[in-house]
């Protein structure tokens, strides 16, 4: 039987999560290199599944499956894992790819375990090494990359990190791919969690996504009282202050100042990172900035991997004269 790659796109609250196109783009590259057939699937309940399947069918894929299970109307890990287990057991794809979203993180390890298979999670890319397919992932908070291979039998499962591929570079098909509706039967009795309301905490007061200049602060600031120094620089530059997760976890800045996978995703003209090491979860939220400047005392901090301008040094020594120089330049 021919090898097949199956991309499971993400549907949330009846909408296609656009990050699915990044995974689809990665899968198209793998399909081109291996000659494997590329198929996609979307899981949910009702008409919305067909609509999303039709949208995906415009991309260059051999087929799209609209997987419909009444018990998948609201997301639960039990229903999603059981439904996909049925489908994958039946179709036997060689490789299953998904985006590394919070939803996928919630059910994919359960799915692979129930199939007695493994998941290479949060990959940033892939490589063909002879017949072997290698997935590249970050380790030790991005300080190292690892080439990881599958040792057991297919199906192989991997998830791709947000930003690993360009979603806007998905190839379209010459004609719409066929869409096949598949009814899956997951009994309601198999679902143990009861999902309730989805909500936002108190209204987000700060919309960092609109900011042109962001001065962002991380652990390197050491103490809450030092935040004031960063605020002074932000004010001098006419920008806004933001932070990495640990700063907001400590309550030094409110949660609506957080940039990263669990906070806001920003793309300012200037992102000035002070004392931020550059953990993956932070980088996914700011790597779209036009210009990234990083000041960090650790020359091996991963933030320097993506910085346009880097300064290895003590931010407490550099920021005060920087504020003065900025004020001078602005006054001139």
């Amino acid at each position: 039987m021919a090898d097949t790659i199956l991309v499971v796109v993400e549907q949330r609250e009846g909408k296609l999560n656009r990050v699915s196109y990044e995974t689809l783009r990665g899968a198209q590259s793998i399909a081109a290199e291996t000659g494997w057939t590329l198929e996609a699937a979307v899981l949910g309940s009702g008409a919305v599944v067909g609509e999303i399947a039709n949208e995906i069918a415009k991309s260059k894929v051999a087929k799209v499956y609209a997987l419909d299970s009444a018990t998948c109307v609201n997301y639960t890990p039990d229903a999603y894992a059981a439904a996909l287990k049925q489908f994958i057991t039946d179709k036997k794809p060689t490789l299953v790819l998904m985006p590394h979203t919070y939803q996928v993180r919630d059910f994919a390890p359960k799915l692979t375990t129930s199939l007695n298979r493994t998941l290479i999670s949060d990959a940033t890319g892939y490589r063909k090494d002879g017949a072997k397919l290698i997935f590249v992932r970050q380790m030790f908070q991005g300080k190292f990359a690892a080439d990881v291979s599958f040792a057991g039998e297919s199906p192989f499962f991997a998830t791709f990190q947000t930003g690993a591929f360009r979603g806007d570079q998905v190839e379209n098909g010459s004609a719409a791919a066929p869409v096949e509706k598949v009814i899956l039967d997951v009994p309601a009795s198999a679902i143990r969690n009861k999902p309730l309301d989805i909500f936002k905490e108190a209204k987000q007061a700060v919309d960092l996504t609109q900011a042109e200049i962001i001065v962002s602060v991380g652990r390197g600031i050491k103490e809450q009282k030092n935040i004031e120094l960063v605020q002074q620089l932000a004010t001098a530059l006419g920008g806004v202050i933001a932070a990495s997760r640990p700063i907001c976890d400590s309550g030094w800045l409110p949660m609506d100042r957080q940039v990263g996978s669990s906070g806001q995703t920003v793309a300012p003209k200037l992102y000035l990172a002070l004392g931020i090491s550059g953990a993956i979860q932070h980088i996914v939220g700011m790597k779209g900035a036009r210009s990234i400047i990083a000041i960090n005392k650790d020359s091996e901090a991963p933030i320097f991997e993506i910085a346009d301008i880097g300064i290895v040094g003590n931010l407490f020594e550099i920021v005060p004269p920087l504020i003065e120089e900025v004020k001078k330049a602005k006054g001139a």
Partner: peptide, 15 residues
Amino acid sequence: NMQKIEKLYIPQKTK
């Protein structure tokens, strides 16, 4: 183990 770390290395800079 069903997945194997073949190699660990310092990531190539893209920028």
